[in-house]
Design a protein around this nucleic acid. Structure first.
Lengths: 253, 253
DNA sequence: TTACAGAATAATGTATACAAAATTAAGCTC
DNA sequence: GAGCTTAATTTTGTATACATTATTCTGTAA
């Protein structure tokens, strides 16, 4: 689709596994425990299922998507399967190479850090737009999520913390009320989603994140758009640096 | 989806023409003067051709894309044509409705204004990244484009002005050196590209734009990222307001 | 004429068959 | 065994036929 755009890499050979991350290359093969798919608009359902599997890691990054194998797994013909794969390519989850088929997209360290820069810009805009238009009710909701998030932090429950953290950011985008902005964020998120399953935050970084969230609440209460935008940009920059450090700590291939 | 995403609108009926713009609804029909397309990876070539035609307005916004008609026009079968249409849907140029086919995407006033907000955020980030890393040679290039742009302004040549204007912004994105950022911009641009063919800037707005471009050069020379980012955000906000005024002036349907 | 029901038509969705390209395997030379 | 050429296989790309869903047309009744 590009992201926009259909992502046809023109590399001569099969895409290599990503350099810095321990992702591996594999053939699809027959996938077991696949529920059968109903008739009509199959491709839509296939897209959903494949996306879920890719995001969840059931199909490894870099794995080649053999149409025939996938068709047998899902018990559908190649026509809807091809359409589904191309739709995923448009989302950036899959990379197509003409006459050489599709691979699950891999992500490099550079791409991850690029993503956080872009997300920062998008979140900053969301903050600018959201702060002036937030209602008291919406503010109360966010305060509630914030308190729940603090509880999860106190309980040292990182996964629970992430859930409420995500809810707060989602809420800000909702309040910003810009469909395109939400869509752009979704696209960028898709690229880094697998990372969220594995990257762990360090304790001191966690403290910083909490502090930035406190500031966000203040800016929202003040309906200060530029301020909230600035905080969010800084917040995402912190995350980016965190991720960069985390990546450095990884043994990696 | 989404841009990313495949844009399956779940509306019950045919998409209606956009409310505020005088776009019309039409059936595709046989298109004349279509050059034949070579074998293999047809869908890639079809995508390019269709995109060009849509962006150029040869196929009207809101027009239904009848697979059969298009296949006859391009002398290909439905398989590659369907893949091409779906690829365009992923780009957001086309809207799919399950079992009811594809229409060229229409754009509403709201969507246009949303787009400029997002472009502003992206350009702002590009400026922040580009300023600290620009080389003297790159700066000279931009100065050259800037001078050419001023000449076109002096000659009252708006189209020429837009070309150099676009070149300068493109150059900043190139220097920013963030592939995802460029891709995001491309996606958003796709949504508003048809507008560029018709919207005309007013004289006083033109003066403001020139002044902002002067400031951009200064910030680049100072390698001041935050400053350039701020200028670009303001610059795009000016454009957004311009477009909003231009839209208000339109009779519209 | 309008409103509705059902048939006829046309469009999209899917499966299969064939063509072209890429990959793999085999055979050959050195 | 390494390196190359060429045949066999696999995989992707395209065309066509059939199935399902929408739409349009037609006829009837009020």
């Amino acid at each position: 689709m590009g992201l926009g755009w259909i992502n046809f890499a023109m590399h001569k050979m099969r895409p290599k596994p990503a350099r810095h991350l321990a992702f591996f290359y594999a053939r699809t093969g027959f996938l077991h425990n696949i529920k059968p798919i109903e008739r009509q608009t199959l491709h839509l359902k296939i897209v959903d299922r494949l996306r879920e599997m890719i995001e969840h890691g059931d199909i490894a990054p870099g794995a080649k998507l053999i149409e025939k194998d996938l068709c047998e797994s899902f018990a559908v013909s190649r026509t809807p399967m091809r359409e589904a794969i191309r739709a995923l390519a448009a989302e950036g989850l899959v990379v197509l190479t003409p006459n050489r088929g599709a691979c699950v997209a891999t992500i490099t360290e550079v791409q991850i850090l690029e993503s956080f820069l872009v997300i920062g810009a998008l979140e900053g805009l969301a903050g600018e737009l959201a702060a002036p238009r937030i209602t008291e009710a919406q503010l109360d909701d966010i305060r509630g999520m914030h308190i729940s998030m603090l509880e999860r932090h106190a309980a040292n429950d990182l996964d629970g913390y992430y859930i409420y953290n995500r809810q707060i950011h989602d809420a800000i985008f909702e309040i910003a009320d810009n469909e395109l902005l939400k869509e752009m964020r979704r696209i960028v998120f898709n690229r880094t989603i697998r990372l969220r399953f594995i990257a762990r935050i360090a304790d001191d970084e966690w403290q910083v994140a909490i502090k930035e969230h406190e500031e966000m609440i203040v800016a929202l209460e003040a309906r200060d758009g530029p301020q909230l935008g600035a905080i969010l940009r800084r917040h995402l920059e912190s995350k980016r640096v965190q991720i960069a450090r985390w990546l450095q700590r990884q043994p990696s291939a």
